[in-house]
């Protein structure tokens, strides 16, 4: 009875959450239930037939799937390890600027790329990296080098992915370090000044160790999305010349599923990715908690 009364008293809150419940059931829970297609043969008419693990066997027997998995892991690792320290360094460099006008200028420019779509960013990189008249190759030529076809060279394409990812998100991600910088106790700096530490020693012994905490937390959290190597980026930048080094799980499921309409197989690949994803997120979460509690630093 008591619960009933409580529910009645709170009825307005239930009205408020009903639309979101309907939305989540239709647009999130039904697709989750829809992954059973991975165990079925898709029929255009009538109901699908159960196929057991047929599509998973097909996946694990496909050498191309392992190529795609390998690409995903390589691209993700490159972005994770090369891209991780950049926002931190950027935040420290901005923090070291004494001129407020320049500081504000830098701060009001660097967030912009994060707000652009990958379609636009891809257009920008194709333009500036063009081997014919892109500015980068014109600079290379000016110094006597040979033009490099960055976007169509298997040797350079992953580098383009890493650089464009950094270009897009370093500024935005530096924000979190900037607020971490504000939380460093100024007493530490004062004390080190008294002890005769110079600017670099203060950066090295106080600022960086403090920011490392934030970086490690971010590293662990990013681990949870390891198999997401950046669909929108690769999808918009990739071309036939570099597909062997650029094709990742997400672009693969898109192509196999929606272009070749191999629905069941693509669902199986997606499910594999989703399950590993859950596992990684839980592991990352556990690690983050453990690290916080143990206080490594």
């Amino acid at each position: 009875m008591k619960v009933k009364k409580k529910i009645y008293k709170n009825r307005f809150f239930y009205y408020l959450i009903i639309p979101s419940i309907i939305y989540f059931i239709i647009f999130h829970y039904i697709p989750i239930y829809g992954v059973r297609l991975a165990f079925q043969d898709y029929r255009l008419f009538g109901s699908n037939e159960w196929a057991g693990f047929k599509y998973f066997k097909q996946m694990f027997n496909s050498p191309y799937f392992f190529q795609v998995l390998k690409n995903t892991i390589i691209i993700s690792s490159l972005k994770l390890f090369i891209g991780l320290p950049v926002p931190m360094i950027l935040a420290v460099l901005i923090n070291e600027i004494k001129n407020n006008k320049f500081k504000n200028y830098v701060r009001s420019v660097i967030y912009l790329p994060h707000l652009l779509s990958w379609v636009v960013i891809s257009a920008i990189f194709i333009t500036i990296l063009s081997p014919v008249d892109g500015i980068v190759n014109q600079i290379i030529s000016f110094f006597g080098g040979e033009p490099i076809p960055f976007m169509t060279s298997t040797k350079h394409f992953r580098g383009v992915l890493v650089i464009s990812e950094i270009w897009r998100s370093a500024g935005w991600d530096s924000m979190i370090y900037s607020s971490a910088l504000l939380s460093i106790d100024p007493v530490l700096y004062e004390a080190s000044k008294v002890d005769g530490a110079n600017r670099f020693q203060r950066m090295w012994y106080i600022t960086f160790p403090e920011l490392m905490k934030t970086m490690i937390t971010l590293f662990i959290l990013n681990m949870g999305f390891f198999l997401k190597a950046g669909f929108d980026q690769v999808f918009n930048m990739m071309n036939d010349a570099v597909i062997s080094v650029a094709d990742i799980i997400d672009t693969y499921t898109y192509r196999v599923g929606l272009i070749q309409t191999n629905f069941s197989y693509a669902t199986a690949v997606g499910l594999f990715q989703g399950v590993i994803g859950i596992f990684l997120i839980f592991m990352a979460n556990k690690l983050a908690k453990k690290y916080d509690a143990a206080g490594l630093w």
Binding site: F27, P31, V35, T253, G274
Partner: peptide, 17 residues
Amino acid sequence: LIIPMLFNPGIIPNYML
């Protein structure tokens, strides 16, 4: 609300929906 953040069913089930 949180479960859908953890598990992404992928592109095809969304398309089928």
